[in-house]
Amino acid sequence: MARFILVRIATMLVTALCLTFIVFWLTNIGPNLEKIARSEAGSRISDAEVASWLERNGYAEPVLLRYAQWLGVAPGWTRQEADGTWRGRCLGPGETPEEAPAFCGVLQGDWGFSRVFRRDVSEVILRGLALTGALMGWVMLVMVPGALLVGIVAGMREGSRTDRVLSTGAILTTATPEYVSGVVFIAVFSSSAVGLRWFNGSATSAMDAITFQNFTLPVMTIALYGMGYIARMTRASMAEVMTSQYIRTARLKGVSFGAVVLRHALRNALIAPFTVIMLQFPWLLTGVVIVETLFNYKGFGWTLVEAAGNNDIDLLLAVSVVSVIVVLLTQLISDIGYALLNPRIRLS
């Protein structure tokens, strides 16, 4: 088991390295840098001025070297200006290379500086993560039990009326992406046109204090889309288990229907959905981005949009590192959990 986890963690690191390099390369592609130069030094500057601005700010070095600097495995760039002052990746204002550390990358804990927010990247990310964590927590709290219940009740008697009604409902929610359900919810529950005004159409106030009014719509919007999917998986898994030979064995042993479902079917039927739930996390991320944009909730997803829209390189890199780690960690947890739930996989 330990070996398996080690291999998985090694794979994770390689994946994270590959992905961050791709992000680094794409954000540092020629036209992107030019855009930065123009936005920092003025939009009317000539091509030659762009080149010299990039040169002075360390953007002209080879991509691989700069990626190594960002990682913190190569010393940060330094250069002396004509006026004798030093500039460099690791240098604060007025510092000289001797005073500052040679390496300042991710490995040293330095995630860089966000151009858009004018703050340290780590600060921006942490604040975003905290807000998104609250959102995701509520989503999971609503979505997972609801989806499992719907799936189990539907799959318990395949083909029954209850099953058909619930399954059709589940299909409906999987066909409703967040930007559709969000728009419809806002229009119905908080617009002046319909006039119900039960909930807030914006979740900005939820950043300070979460209330029923300001958080219901964003949570429901995300939960609904994922719920149908998990419910359908659970239903399929449950229906398959219910037709299996060992359920028949249990039934013919004289076990009552309720006990068959609870004692014999449930554990086997939950193995597949567990994997699905864990793999939902990366998928939910897209939903989070949409919902945070739609409801103006300044969490991680909103940060991602801001960073990507403005090519805020350091912030974007940090965002991708975090999301990749979230994705890979959930995959790891899903594998381990699968092994724990399923005695057939467990080490003998």
């Binding site: 794409l26 954000t27 020629g30 030019e34 991602l304 949009v305």
Partner: peptide, 23 residues
């Protein structure tokens, strides 16, 4: 798995922005 580990939105932002298209 590498591609699947990318958040879709980030991928879109990286691929579909005019600057990247220009390259």
């Amino acid at each position: 798995n590498l591609i699947l580990a990318f958040p879709v939105i980030l991928l879109f932002y990286l691929l579909v922005t005019p600057e990247v298209v220009r390259t």
